[in-house]
Amino acid sequence: MINDKEFIKFEDGFFKPYFEKFIEFKRGKGEKVANSTLTRMRKLNSLLNNYQSDRITEQMILEVLAPRKGLSEIERQYMTSVLRQFCSFLILLGVEAAVIPTEYMRVARSEFRPYIFSGEELRRLTAAADSLSPARRSKAHQQIYPVLVRILIGTGMRIGEVLKLTRGDVDTINGVIKVINGKNGVSRYIPVSDSLKKILCDYSETIDMSYEDKPFFTSSYTGGHLTYDAMKYMFPKIFKMADIYLPDGKTPNIHSIRHTFCTRSLEKMLGAGMNIYTAIPILAAYVGHMNYMDTEKYIHFTEQGHEDFIKQESALGSIFPEVTNE
């Protein structure tokens, strides 16, 4: 049964009970309905209530999904996706609902372009984290960031997953990090390298690991988990210390470290002779992707990888027969 507290912000109207059934339906299939999705459903419910109708017409769809101030194109596409699914659900229940016009189903492109770090840049990044000066209130960040940066580089974990780690999630004896309810509700165990295991062991000796529910990385300001706001302040600082900049002079996005991990890891697996059809599923499971298409988005050509591809591609020329006009 759905918790009633989740529907406090749903306005009363014809579609409210159908949104509630829709959420139950999605969860019944094993899907995680994120808070952001619930928020979009509440918005759609409010917008549809304005029409005081017991059906969804194409005109209603056009007006609800029309571009407007304060609604980004990416968010509009998310709203479109939710409404498309909801309309299909209503049709199954015998409620009249129009089909989303095809012109609204364009895929929104993110402006984010990952930066793939070189091996030398990764070394400079860890060196910069190791050389942080003490803060006014605490020296804790001098212990935390060298470990945090190495976890990102060595596991490809999402920064949010790292920040949520508790002491019970890190098995320093066996060298395994446990991620519970990561993105899309995916949980996984992440074995780490011997070198990272040693770093985790050394760090664990500076904190009391018997308190399993306490944050693995504790904020000296709040006593709770480190926040993403703290990361947005510290990582540009560390990137600058490491002299790592984008072509436009800005510093890279933290998430680029994850892209780099996926790209470098695939290169190593293929270089070791592993078939790509074997490598991709292994990499997808390790980094917590629900499907292989998600993993493909993280695979980028490095300069060396591109050169290797050109060499291999050029060898294919003798395989294909020439086509003549004779």
Rank of each mutant, 00 (worst) to 15 (best):
D130P: 01
A98N: 00
S195E: 08
Q142Y: 13
V107W: 12
V99Q: 04
V186D: 07
A135C: 06
V176M: 12
F112E: 07
V147Y: 03
R158C: 08
Q85E: 07
D171Q: 11
K198D: 14
F112Y: 09
T80S: 13
R109L: 13
I116M: 11
R109I: 11
E96V: 01
R106S: 15
K198V: 10
K183A: 05
F89C: 09
S187M: 09
L152H: 12
K198Q: 10
F117T: 00
T155L: 04
L93S: 11
P146N: 06
Q77D: 10
R188K: 11
G154Q: 07
N184T: 15
G160C: 10
S131V: 00
K178N: 07
S193M: 08
R113A: 15
T126I: 09
I100W: 00
I180E: 10
E96P: 02
F117Y: 02
A98T: 01
A98S: 01
D169N: 08
S187I: 05
A127Y: 03
A128L: 02
P134S: 02
L122M: 03
S131Y: 07
M105I: 04
R137G: 05
I159P: 06
V176I: 15
G156R: 05
Q142E: 14
V107N: 14
L90C: 00
L165N: 13
V162Q: 08
T155E: 06
S88I: 00
Y115H: 07
M105A: 04
I177N: 06
L92K: 13
G160F: 05
P146I: 11
I116C: 07
E161F: 07
P191I: 10
Q77N: 10
R137P: 06
R76W: 03
R106Q: 15
Y145T: 03
T126W: 05
R84H: 12
L148I: 12
M79T: 08
E121W: 03
F117P: 00
S138W: 04
M79K: 03
A140R: 14
E103T: 03
L165Y: 09
I144F: 08
S195F: 05
T172F: 04
I153S: 08
R113N: 13
G185I: 14
S88V: 00
G168W: 04
K197E: 09
V162E: 01
F89K: 13
P134V: 01
M105C: 11
V176P: 11
Q142D: 12
N174E: 14
V99F: 02
V147I: 13
S138C: 10
V149K: 08
K164R: 14
A108V: 04
S195N: 11
L92Q: 12
G94N: 02
L148P: 06
E96L: 01
V99E: 04
I153V: 14
T166F: 12
A135N: 09
L148H: 11
V95S: 06
S131R: 01
I153F: 07
R76Q: 15
S138N: 01
Y78M: 09
I100Y: 01
